[in-house]
């Protein structure tokens, strides 16, 4: 008997058919490709949450007392009630909305990170469910013209109609109605860092990362806007190069921002404070707008949440029946997960 023939028979016996979960590996690749394409970088899941939380904590703390109450889109307070927020990390550098309350022209902004965050009434255990940007969702009125065969990718809904449109698409797909949408972008981050006078970092060794444009010698540095952005986005030459290391670095930067705010007398300097408030307002667009009191209440309630009690979940997915290169929600598992967010 021919040896190659026998070997091929054995191979056929040992072979497994490609599983549906292989699409996840495709999503991994697509995610990498999307990151490469965007010279502007991508928010990681955690940094979006951290940035939103930081902004939520900071905005009310910094709002001048004599400033008139911003007009709220809804008047209902959020205290003592469960709250679901759709967080969108936008790669726009223009400011997704000049201040809370506007849905803002979004231009060609793309949302790389979408997250449903559910805060229970007692704010003790926060649940965050990440939704992939290429998730196929049913089309909604605001996506007319962009949807094909009644479906659309989630980030396309954001590109088509902004946060409000993404929220409608999410609601239709998940039956969870986001009470608020929050859009965070890079411009805001840069402005915030500049407004606090930069952040201090200490590097154990020199860094030269052409991908992010970061070039620094070893030792202590004061980084301003763009350099700070490069620092949080760099993956090479810092730490072990992993995404996790980057997330940690981003958290450190946010902590440093908070420290600079509280240490440097920013709170007592009206000029600096004004700049910081502007920066924060442009970095986080909340729709419907939150009143000052409401935001402060939310910030205080979040302060009770132990970060360890924030549970991150990825929604159950499967390859779409109509297009195996795309993802759709895997039912009934996804439905059960979303039911917990109501």
């Amino acid at each position: 008997m021919d040896d190659l023939h026998a070997l091929r028979e054995l191979g056929r016996e040992l072979e497994s058919p490609p599983p549906a979960s292989l699409v996840r590996q495709r999503a991994r690749l697509a995610g990498r490709a999307a990151r490469r394409r965007s010279r502007r970088g991508t928010w990681t899941l955690l940094s979006v949450v951290a940035a939103a939380t930081a902004a939520l904590v900071l905005v009310p703390a910094l709002l001048p007392r004599d400033r008139p109450e911003p007009r709220a889109g809804t008047t209902a307070g959020t205290a003592g009630r469960p709250l679901t927020i759709l967080l969108l990390g936008s790669d726009a550098r223009t400011g997704a909305g000049a201040g809370a309350g506007t849905d803002g022209p979004v231009r060609t902004a793309r949302s790389d990170t979408l997250l449903l965050v559910h805060l229970p009434a007692d704010r003790k255990s926060v649940r965050a469910v990440s939704l992939p940007r290429d998730l196929l969702v049913p089309s909604v009125p605001c996506t007319r013209g962009v949807a094909s065969r009644g479906r659309i990718m989630l980030n396309a809904a954001f590109s088509a109609g902004g946060a409000a449109c993404a929220a409608q698409a999410v609601e239709k797909a998940t039956a969870v109605r986001p009470d608020r949408t929050m859009v965070i972008d890079f411009t805001g981050f840069v402005t915030v860092v500049n407004a606090v006078g930069g952040i201090r970092v200490t590097l154990p060794k020199s860094v030269n990362d052409p991908a992010s444009g970061l070039r620094l010698s070893a030792g202590r540095h004061l980084l301003r806007g763009e350099a700070a952005l490069a620092y949080v986005r760099a993956r090479h030459g810092l730490g072990d190069g992993s995404d996790l290391a980057r997330v940690k670095r981003q958290q450190q930067v946010l902590a440093e921002v908070v420290r600079r705010l509280t240490d440097a007398g920013a709170l007592t300097d009206p000029v600096r404070m004004g700049r910081i408030v502007e920066a924060l307002a442009s970095s986080l667009a909340v729709t419907p707008a939150m009143g000052k009191v409401e935001m402060l209440g939310l910030a205080r309630s979040l302060a009770r949440t132990d970060p360890a009690d924030v549970a991150f979940t990825t929604v159950p997915l499967r390859p779409a029946a109509a297009d195996p290169a795309r993802l759709e929600l895997k039912q009934p598992q996804a439905g059960r997960l979303f039911a917990q967010l109501k």
């Binding site: 040992l14 497994s16 058919p17 490609p18 495709r26 697509a30």
Partner: peptide
Amino acid sequence: PEAFAALFDRYAAMLYRYVSRRLGPEPAE
């Protein structure tokens, strides 16, 4: 860069079959 995903669509199944023969289904993925 997104165009690269088309290469996955062409060959992921073929590679999976090959690697699953050598290593079994879980490592293959």
